[in-house]
Design a protein around this nucleic acid. Structure first.
Lengths: 252, 252
DNA sequence: GACGCGAATAAGTCGGACTAAACCGAGGTC
DNA sequence: GACCTCGGTTTAGTCCGACTTATTCGCGTC
């Protein structure tokens, strides 16, 4: 474990964020490397088309073994961020190839300063998907779905969005709603959407105390779905997303 | 892209599913391993919750080095299919954790017998996203977007959907449409959707000669978007997706 | 000037050794 | 008798260094 000793060697005037080795019991080493490289790329510090340093050199620079470095690069490759070929090296792919819906990529995107344009895009996606999902949910929900949504709503009311538990409950509500559509493709989007929701909520929170109580909006959606009123469900969800976008926009 | 059909049909016979990937095969070794394991999991031959054999044993069984095997597992981990911890081993995660929108996972899902329920779900997602995207595209498309869509349409008319080039043009059309929304989140979905489109188109093709010419539908969509008629664009796209679902349903 | 042929190069694969984490059961404590 | 603690054992995680394969690029040939 050579990664422990802080770089006593020349630390390069700041521009060289040497091996980010979080507290030993955090995520695994390759996870840290992937996180490091991933944020570098998503944030644009390594632009698309650029070639990163060779494996041996880069692994040494980060003070990790080549195996760990390579496994990290595999992760990036799996998410479409980079591509590597013998003799050519490892290049950052154009943004169009990135799996931006991948929860982890989303996390990297939000780990620094969030791109306001991208946040707008995400809300636009929510505005497309979630009302339609609410409509389907109102059609197909069963007893268990309603229960799950009600539970999430209760938790959300108890703790507010100011707490982690509250935000988790918010996510649970949206997850339960997507699950109530009984559509696996939509449920897969759920992970991305709830990630986006929780990140943006966090930023809203950071900016100021929540200016508006979001619970009533959620209750309207819930009632419509539980009651099987498809149009009302879609409409209620649409206003919910619109208001959330409004709040987020103000805080950025 | 036709190098996909690996001879992985041999594995059914016995308990000897050796990845026959002689050197010279298209993609890299770890890609073949990931494909092998990925299809095993997505197809349900290795059910969620199950623990796969230890690295050393499994790598040896597949006749590859442990490094290559591990890198393949990293890919699966990155896509949310498995999770591994020391002493516990590597377990298949529940379906809800899988990134089903990942193009590669989608490819694995379609490499065997396609799950008709999942195909229906995918079309439902298309039915939600693409009409809304067409509406946005009609609002925001610029000169280049229109040109890209027209070019794709021309190619699509020249070659039919019976050819690879024709299917590629179909994908290009949908990609260009999503791109015309100028929404990066939607464009990210584009990869998943066009993957789904091309896979299902292939199955339609396999079943029988295409029963209906899809070009007129596409032209209606194109005209509405080029003309900036948002409602017509959404409506035309909705019927396009509905008809495509109809065709696909018949062929399965 | 175009074309192929052969290095140089960087990723890909191999194997084996060692480390660290987590589960499990033996043994002790209350 | 039940619970806690503490090692032991299993399995992934990391490291190392050598070798292979696939490209790219420059050189020489036609």
């Amino acid at each position: 474990m050579a990664a422990d000793e802080q770089a006593d060697s020349v630390d390069e005037a700041g521009v060289q964020p040497i091996t980010r080795t979080p507290k030993g019991s955090g995520r695994r080493l390759r996870g840290a490397i992937a996180h490091y490289l991933g944020t570098q790329i998503v944030s644009g510090r390594i632009a698309p088309g650029e070639k990163l340093t060779g494996e041996v050199a880069n692994a040494e620079a980060l003070d990790v073994s080549r195996s760990a470095y390579r496994e990290a690069v595999q992760v990036l490759t799996a998410k479409g961020l980079v591509e590597s070929r013998p003799k050519a090296g490892t290049h950052v792919l154009p943004r169009s190839r990135w799996n931006m819906l991948d929860p982890q990529v989303l996390a990297w995107a939000f780990s620094g300063e969030p791109d306001t344009d991208f946040v707008r895009d995400l809300f636009e996606l929510r505005a497309v998907v979630e009302p339609a999902a609410a409509r389907l949910a109102a059609e197909r929900r069963d007893r268990d779905d309603v229960k799950a949504m009600r539970d999430a709503l209760t938790k959300m009311r108890r703790h507010t969005l100011a707490t982690d538990a509250g935000r988790a409950a918010d996510r649970d509500f949206h997850d339960a709603l997507l699950a109530a559509t009984h559509n696996h493709a939509l449920m897969a989007l759920s992970a991305s959407i709830s990630a986006a929701v929780s990140w943006t909520t966090k930023y809203k929170q950071r900016a100021r105390a929540l200016p508006r109580d979001p619970v009533p909006d959620h209750i309207k959606v819930f009632d419509a779905i539980a009651g099987g009123d498809v149009d009302a469900a879609a409409a209620a969800m649409r206003t919910l997303v619109d208001l959330a976008l409004e709040d987020t926009r103000l805080s950025m």
